[in-house]
Amino acid sequence: MPALIREATLMVRAIDLFCGGGGSSWGAQAAGAELVGAVDAWDVAARTYSDNFPGAVVVNTRLSDESGPEIFGDIGQVDLLIASPECTHHSIARGAKPRCDESRRSGWYVMRFIREMRPQWIVLENVAMMRNWEGFRELKTALEDVGYLLTIQTLDAADFGVPQARRRLFIMGELGRKPDEVTVPPSHPLPASTILDEPGTWPAKHAFDERRAEATAERIRAGIAELGEGEDFLVVYYSSDRAGGWQPLTRPLRTLTTLDRFGLVSWVEGIPRLRMLQLPELRRAMGFGLCPRTGREYRLEYGSRRDRVKILGNGVCPPVMQHVIECLTGIGCSLARAA
């Protein structure tokens, strides 16, 4: 590996395809990357990304097999390509809805960018079940044919200081060199209690409000029966998570989705009250903190509440991507190994 790559001052120029609101880029930026381009089909996500990365060329369009680097204009050399192709139709979260062939093919839409830009490093992120996609092996072979040696790992955000259990697949590639596997840093998982605002910050209603759906009330009763009165906990407000419908605050939050689904049951003067988790809490659950390079806070200003929950639920936890990029590019953990 060239000596320059081991310099902590090296600025890695990066683009982010299927960028969403910029979770991957927020982590890459913290690792030392300069985001110069991004693309997403959803206008709310593209505006959110632009707000957080004003120096990047952000394109609001839907990628296809024909899409390539020309959409960015002349942005110069790109060292790192990050992509999070649409994952809805690889995931069990899709329920019984029919599969969409275009969404499942979206992993291929990165190939023209990779062949023509030939970045030194690539990171493709998706749900762990992408391994079961029938095109997965072909995509892997196509990347290898371009010259990338690959390391493929499933990583859990809870192992990287994120107070959420969130397993994702990372395909990491480098031209001419097989990336080392990402090692999990020594840490203790952060519990869901660490994301919560101070009691009384947000209004809450009686947990057994007469308008409460009976299924929700049953999940609340189950939590109280298990933990006892006076113990706060989280409940799945809509649908079910196939894990009992509630969880204690002593464990990392279960995986956030694009739906506004987690509520906090708290006790006030001996009465259980319920409120939904709020956007600042969900942002913490994804691991968004101040960017160590810019000192800025991640901004989530556009769209409805539902839109902003969707942006977070579709996102990548920045601390995980930060660790991946640091190790992959030689800045960070690889630099430490060489010392």
Rank of each mutant, 00 (worst) to 15 (best):
G73E: 12
E86S: 02
P54I: 00
V39G: 00
R13H: 14
W42M: 05
D101E: 12
I5E: 15
A96P: 15
A28M: 09
N52I: 01
D43I: 12
Q77M: 14
R47G: 05
A41R: 02
K97T: 12
N52D: 06
G95Q: 09
F18L: 00
E66N: 14
L17H: 02
A41T: 03
N52E: 02
S64M: 10
G32A: 01
W42Q: 08
V57M: 10
V39I: 08
F18G: 02
E86Q: 06
L80F: 05
R47D: 10
G27D: 08
C87Q: 00
A96Q: 13
G27M: 09
D74V: 12
I5C: 15
D51R: 09
T48I: 01
I75K: 10
L10S: 11
L10T: 13
G27I: 06
L63Q: 08
G55C: 05
S50P: 00
A28S: 06
S64T: 11
F18I: 01
G37S: 03
D101W: 10
P85L: 10
I82K: 07
G73I: 11
I82A: 08
K97N: 11
V36Y: 07
G95E: 08
I75T: 06
A46W: 03
G76E: 06
G37V: 01
L81M: 11
S24H: 08
V36M: 03
E70Q: 10
E70W: 08
D65T: 11
L63F: 07
Y49K: 02
A8P: 14
V59C: 06
E7T: 15
A83N: 03
T9I: 14
R94G: 04
L17S: 05
E7C: 15
A46F: 03
I75R: 08
S84Q: 07
F53M: 00
R13M: 11
W42A: 04
R94P: 09
P54F: 02
A56S: 04
A46P: 05
A31C: 09
G95D: 09
E34C: 11
L35S: 04
G32S: 03
H89R: 03
D43N: 11
F72V: 03
T88G: 02
E66W: 13
I71S: 00
V58W: 00
E66L: 12
R94I: 01
A14W: 13
A41S: 02
G27S: 10
V78P: 08
A33C: 12
P54C: 00
Q77A: 13
S50R: 10
G55I: 04
A30H: 13
G76Q: 06
G32Q: 02
S50A: 13
C100F: 06
R6W: 14
P69R: 09
A3N: 15
I71P: 03
A56W: 01
A45N: 01
D101S: 15
L4C: 15
E34V: 07
A93N: 09
V58H: 05
A31F: 10
S103V: 04
T48A: 06
C87T: 04
R105H: 12
D79L: 00
D51Q: 13
D43S: 13
I92C: 11
L81H: 10
A38Q: 07
S50H: 06
W42T: 02
S24R: 08
S25H: 11
